[in-house]
Design a protein around this nucleic acid. Structure first.
Lengths: 340, 340
DNA sequence: CTGAAAGCGCTAACAT
DNA sequence: ATGTTAGCGCTTTCAG
């Protein structure tokens, strides 16, 4: 049992040939005689040779690593996207290094610095909640490093991205509320600096318009996406003289905070208030009543992001930023169907 | 904006000194004159020099990466543990490569192969559900590579590990049921090849004994931890002539499957059946009624695992396998307190 | 005080 | 058909 992984040198000296012969034999180079090739390959297999990625990386000046930055690591949404990235990356011989910005702008900048120091070949990023300017991507863009944003995006004219049809689904969902009998449809929104929050807000307004409503300021609450602000927003909505009969919450954290607060006040879902969540199936069906939800194709988002990334890696292409828009899906469950 | 990261060579030629001088100046080697040192350091800072980890790795024959294998990536439990590993790893200049075994023995072996090919310095692993023999760790152990198991462990006399006090908490929990008035306490168990499942099962038996009960075979169901088997087990328990008045489920998947099935049958929790879950606070308080749960110090598990790993890296120590046992915590909520 | 050279594992010209 | 050499970025003897 050798302590160190076997190298070309080991094989070469065992077989009394040169290192380059071994190297060539391993890749079936036509110059090498069949006998030598056979001997080399069989010994390599026996000794379980595998090329040293560090040496290869140094030689080719490429680490085969993608840096991934997500706002957090512990929610299904991002975990699942990361799985998708990983799968495509692995299939293409890439590793990924995962960092969490913890929703912080400062931390996001730090992550980028660290990943660049680790010599990642490029980055796949979902912006932090607190990120409001986008200059920290200058270096990456100017260096023409592969860069892909997903979900929360920016600088779309320069950077490729993967998103879902937020605006459209928000509109659809608002109309769904209306069709279900709701007439005072509230929205707990997120920071308008965040693309997804903005898109969903706009979709909401557009849906309202389609139903012949104009926006009612008092029914719209902006939050920073934290549970506490979401709870407070819900409380305010519920204490309105004319409270809403439906709430569209901008993301999962907010959705569940709203649900908890509604129940805490003893109101019934959907009888008193209809609710939809933006979350996955497991969570939507875990609670009581089961939640109508917008399901995101998380795994696919990850896959697409990785594919966009790899496409940029290839020198040939002109690096025209591409935008992939995936469809999310509204799944109707009990929480938004009022008893007739 | 240079396309390639700056190297010692770049600095050396700019300053008309040798590469080795630059290398030494950067580490404040006493041999180098203060002036040169100053010049080098200032240029390095200006040009944002950072050493090439590939070159360093090749030189020192170490990649500074830890391979991490978890049964899945998308649940809070593992994500959170990974965060803990990551934090300690990063603090110590290590990267981690994360792989998922998807609960499969075959995939686990594959992951190990791949990680070894990536030249990780060692592994931190939580065994897959389907892993029943442990010979695939021979190579790692014989090579004296750092290896740490957590949660689901094996070969404890040879390998360091991090676990929680499963046996004790299962006992405590069983007694808690009894104290709450339950007299027919069922257990939906996991594969007895899995350390956690075995420990919890034994703790359950021990708790029963403490309450003056002997085990009732009909109240114990063994599952493979999938949602479908858990649902089926619950169904069988509920259809017993004398159904249980409390269910202790071995993990979160099983807990939530059981809860759903109980509700589906129109039974009330905790009135008809008390329930505890092994899950995190977010999920325990998300559902109705809120679940009494066993909380695991997930982040700490990760941190400890990483620390154990790093300790093994240091050559000095004799590599005596250590076992860290962390305390989990029983948090009583509505689901296990029967109305009096 | 500083430079030259070797070597980590590998590949790809460039010999032979 | 095979070997030699240089070089990727860095550290570390060994020589000045």
């Amino acid at each position: 049992m050798t302590k160190h992984p076997v190298s070309l040198k080991d094989i070469a000296s065992a077989l009394q040939v040169s290192i380059s012969t071994v190297s060539r034999a391993l890749k079936n180079h036509p110059d090498i005689s069949p006998e030598v090739t056979a001997k080399v390959q069989s010994l390599a297999r026996e000794w379980n040779y595998s090329p040293n990625p560090l040496a290869m990386g140094l030689l080719r000046q490429q680490t085969k690593t993608i840096g991934v930055i997500v706002p957090d690591l512990v929610t299904y949404f991002y975990s699942s996207i990361i799985s998708g990235i990983e799968q495509v990356a692995k299939e293409n011989g890439y590793y990924i290094i995962i960092s969490s910005s913890n929703e912080s702008y400062e931390k996001e900048k730090e992550c980028i610095e660290n990943l660049l120091m680790s010599r990642v070949e490029g980055l796949i990023i979902c912006l932090a909640r607190d990120t409001v300017d986008y200059n920290h991507f200058d270096k990456i863009i100017n260096n023409e490093m592969p860069l892909v944003f997903f979900d929360r995006i920016c600088r779309t004219s320069e950077v490729s991205s993967v998103v879902t049809d937020n605006r459209e689904i928000a509109r659809e969902l608002t109309i769904h509320f209306y069709d279900g009998g709701a007439r005072r449809i509230a929205h707990i929104a997120g920071p308008q600096t965040l693309s997804i929050a903005k898109d969903r807000y706009e979709g909401y307004l557009s849906g309202l318009a389609d139903c012949g409503f104009s926006a009612d300021e008092s029914l719209i609450k902006f939050t920073n996406l934290t549970e506490s602000e979401a709870t407070e927003a819900t409380r305010q909505l519920l204490s309105l003289p004319k409270p809403p009969d439906a709430i569209f919450s901008v993301n999962d954290t907010v959705s569940f905070a709203a649900m908890k607060e509604i129940k805490r006040q003893g109101l019934r879902i959907p009888d008193d208030i209809s609710l939809v969540a933006i979350t996955d199936e497991f969570h939507a069906t875990l609670v009581d009543p089961q939640l109508t939800n917008v399901m995101h194709p998380t795994y696919e988002i990850g896959q697409e992001a990785a594919r966009l990334f790899l496409r940029q890696g290839k020198q040939g292409e002109k690096m025209v930023p591409m935008q992939v828009v995936l469809k999310s899906q509204l799944v109707v469950r009990a929480s938004s169907v009022k008893p007739t």
